Computed example of a mutant assay.
Amino acid sequence: MNPLLRAEQAVLGAVLIDPGQLTRLDWLAPDHFYRPVHQALFGALRTLRDDGHSALSDDGPVPLSWVNNAVDEAGLHVRGLTTSYAHTLISACPRFEHAPVYGRMVLEGAIHRTIAQHAIRLHQAARADAVQGEVEGALRTADVLTGVLTDLARRWGTDPRPVAPTTAPAAVTTVSPPVQSDQVAEDERFLLAVLTEQPRAMDEVVDWLRPVDFADPAHGQVYRCLGALHHRGEPIDRITLLWEAQRRGLLADGTLSGEQLIAIGDGMLPGSAEWFGHRVMRSSLTRTAAASARAVRALAEDEALGPGRLINHALHALGPLDEVRARWATAKGSPAPKPTASAPSAGGPPPARVQAARARSAPRPTPSPPVQPSPVPAAAPSRPPSRARP
């Protein structure tokens, strides 16, 4: 059986056996459970607790009304839940005093699942932007993913900071989103032609455009040669470009051919280097967003990766996107975006983060043996289910 399913059953069974365990699970939310019936039942148990159910104040055996009322309350939000399943949950709990550990397992599963879902959304947004020639959707979705990672780090009790994984995720591929490849290649050729044929054209793009922004590696190498000539203050034309490519060994290793370099600019009309550079940058940003999304998803699907490392590795995987985004802001004359995650403050982690970590790991005194719900309802009248959850 799936360990995550067993953990969800165990934590619910522990609370049904001992309602007081809810006070040790304040950091666990209903949406952290995978199965909808478990989400509804945990939410119902919290509702009964918040409404002051008698089971939390009685010192004697846990009344059967605690189980019945929880099933009735959860039944308002999900179908198929029966009292017999509630008793199955009780049987599935080995030790009710281990509820925080079971809850931690549920939270771990939720962290992996949530990060994977948001990574998929980022990839979809990048694909859509690549087709439409935009970047706003991918940037917004990346901001949402960053916020989710930061919130999950707070719940888990760690500092969100980018940390490189020791080994690259096995599932990461180099497949690019489905863009209009012919159009992208044409934009790159036009840009290289403008940079080669127009003096001072490099001044318009050199501060924010990089060789890695070109989809065609050969085009990136040509731009690298142009950048080297510009940096040394040498004149740029087709002959000097051919000479620089030869000095870098690009002709000898077959990366470029002399015919390719001499043909740059043939049949091209004059244009704006900045305009074509923006088009190349947009394509680069969506490709980088898609690559980051695939890397984050691969990390989230690694079940052996702990939540703390997963969050920090995912933030590191978003680093290339942050770098391209900062250069895009420079190209557009916009303020630079805020960094993905800040370093931990010198004053130590916030109290809420410390409390979250302690709730999972602090030793607890050994409680009395578990008390199963009485087979006969208590004398107190049964509480009718609430029609509204807080």
Results as ranks from 00 to 15, higher is better:
residue 251 L to I: 12
residue 277 G to A: 08
residue 337 P to Q: 06
residue 295 A to L: 01
residue 206 V to L: 03
residue 335 P to C: 00
residue 146 T to M: 06
residue 266 D to N: 15
residue 213 D to N: 02
residue 338 K to Q: 11
residue 19 P to I: 15
residue 350 P to C: 04
residue 171 A to P: 11
residue 127 R to D: 05
residue 258 G to D: 04
residue 134 E to T: 14
residue 386 S to E: 07
residue 270 P to H: 07
residue 185 A to P: 01
residue 102 Y to L: 11
residue 118 H to K: 12
residue 328 W to Y: 08
residue 300 A to I: 00
residue 195 L to I: 10
residue 337 P to E: 01
residue 49 R to E: 15
residue 9 Q to E: 11
residue 179 V to M: 00
residue 223 Y to H: 05
residue 50 D to I: 03
residue 247 R to K: 00
residue 388 A to W: 06
residue 234 E to C: 06
residue 171 A to T: 13
residue 59 D to R: 14
residue 327 R to N: 05
residue 53 H to I: 13
residue 33 F to I: 02
residue 136 E to D: 15
residue 315 L to R: 10
residue 311 I to Y: 07
residue 307 P to D: 14
residue 155 R to A: 02
residue 112 H to W: 10
residue 1 M to D: 12
residue 15 V to Q: 13
residue 316 H to P: 06
residue 160 P to L: 12
residue 204 E to H: 00
residue 206 V to H: 00
residue 22 L to A: 11
residue 194 V to P: 09
residue 71 V to N: 14
residue 306 G to N: 00
residue 135 V to C: 04
residue 19 P to F: 13
residue 378 A to G: 11
residue 195 L to F: 03
residue 259 E to D: 13
residue 224 R to I: 02
residue 64 L to Y: 09
residue 89 L to D: 02
residue 103 G to R: 02
residue 235 P to R: 12
residue 339 P to K: 10
residue 260 Q to V: 11
residue 252 A to I: 12
residue 354 V to P: 11
residue 125 A to R: 08
residue 122 L to Q: 06
residue 171 A to R: 14
residue 100 P to L: 07
residue 356 A to F: 03
residue 158 T to F: 13
residue 328 W to H: 07
residue 38 H to M: 00
residue 243 W to F: 04
residue 225 C to N: 05
residue 150 T to P: 07
residue 28 L to G: 06
residue 197 E to N: 11
residue 146 T to S: 12
residue 310 L to D: 09
residue 201 A to G: 06
residue 186 E to V: 03
residue 302 D to G: 00
residue 257 S to G: 15
residue 210 R to T: 03
residue 33 F to K: 02
residue 22 L to W: 08
residue 18 D to F: 04
residue 288 T to I: 02
residue 219 H to D: 05
residue 263 A to F: 08
residue 60 G to A: 10
residue 302 D to Q: 00
residue 28 L to D: 07
residue 92 A to M: 11
residue 338 K to V: 14
residue 59 D to M: 14
